[in-house]
């Protein structure tokens, strides 16, 4: 990813994080979980960036990224989804997914040092499904968490495809990989803008 794009990414991410943290006391449970998600993801991103700037292999951090993203966004959706069937589906996912991944790493620890395609696929896809659940729930209703949900939906699905190709990209010449990671950077900016819009709406209601 071009350096400037990466810097814009980090900046937007940190701005959003600070904005949510400032309002933290007034936020409801769902937004508090989301703030926590932003915090954890930011920390992982910053560590990733530190590794990459020092020329170290940072791919193993992707597992934390995907897993925590899955875990925290699942908690987030668990608080905002209202239909019992959807919540049960989410709970089953929340239990099954870590077990399956745990078993996978137990039998093949080497997966830890590259992108684990199954991990990317399952953790992202479940979140996309939850986002769809929420879209379904707010049909004909007030558009609660609408921007946040849209942002999550677009970013997670888009980035999943890019991350799936990650193992190949990491073996290509750096200049090719860079262009493709720029796509992810742009997608991430869009995501952060959606988060910001949600924050603006939220602030007006507080």
């Amino acid at each position: 990813m071009p350096r400037i794009l990466a810097d814009v990414n980090y900046l937007l991410m940190l701005i959003n994080l600070v904005l949510f943290l400032i309002q933290f006391k007034k936020l409801n449970k769902a937004f508090r979980i989301f703030t926590f998600y932003l915090l954890v993801i930011s920390v992982i991103q910053l560590i990733t960036s530190y590794y990459s700037r020092n020329g170290m292999n940072n791919l193993f951090l992707s597992h934390f990224y995907f897993f925590f993203q899955f875990l925290l966004l699942s908690f987030f959706y668990y608080t905002i989804l209202t239909v019992p069937l959807q919540r049960r589906f989410l709970l089953i996912g929340l239990v099954i997914c870590p077990i399956v991944l745990g078993v996978q790493y137990y039998f093949d620890p080497s997966l830890f040092f590259g992108f684990n395609l199954f991990e990317i696929f399952i953790t992202s896809f479940l979140i996309v499904i939850y986002a769809m659940f929420h879209f379904y729930n707010i049909l004909n209703e007030s558009k609660q968490y609408y921007y946040l949900n849209t942002g999550i939906f677009i970013y997670i699905f888009g980035s999943t495809v890019l991350f799936l190709t990650g193992n190949i990209l990491s073996t290509l010449d750096k200049s090719y990989g860079r262009n493709i990671w720029a796509l992810n950077g742009i997608l991430y900016i869009i995501y952060q803008i959606y988060i910001f819009i949600e924050w603006r709406r939220l602030k007006n209601h507080l």
């Binding site: 395609l117 199954f118 990317i120 696929f121 896809f125 996309v128 499904i129 769809m132 879209f135 379904y136 699905f157 999943t160 495809v161 799936l164 190709t165 193992n167 190949i168 073996t171 290509l172 010449d173």
Partner: peptide
């Protein structure tokens, strides 16, 4: 620098394919 092997390519294509098909299915259901 590692040359990506055919196995890796196939794996990526299969996962991407599955992701898109499931996504399309999810959208249809939605």
């Amino acid at each position: 620098q590692i040359i990506p092997n055919a196995e890796q390519f196939v794996e990526v294509i299969i996962y991407t394919f599955i992701a898109f098909v499931l996504m399309a299915l999810a959208l249809l259901l939605f």
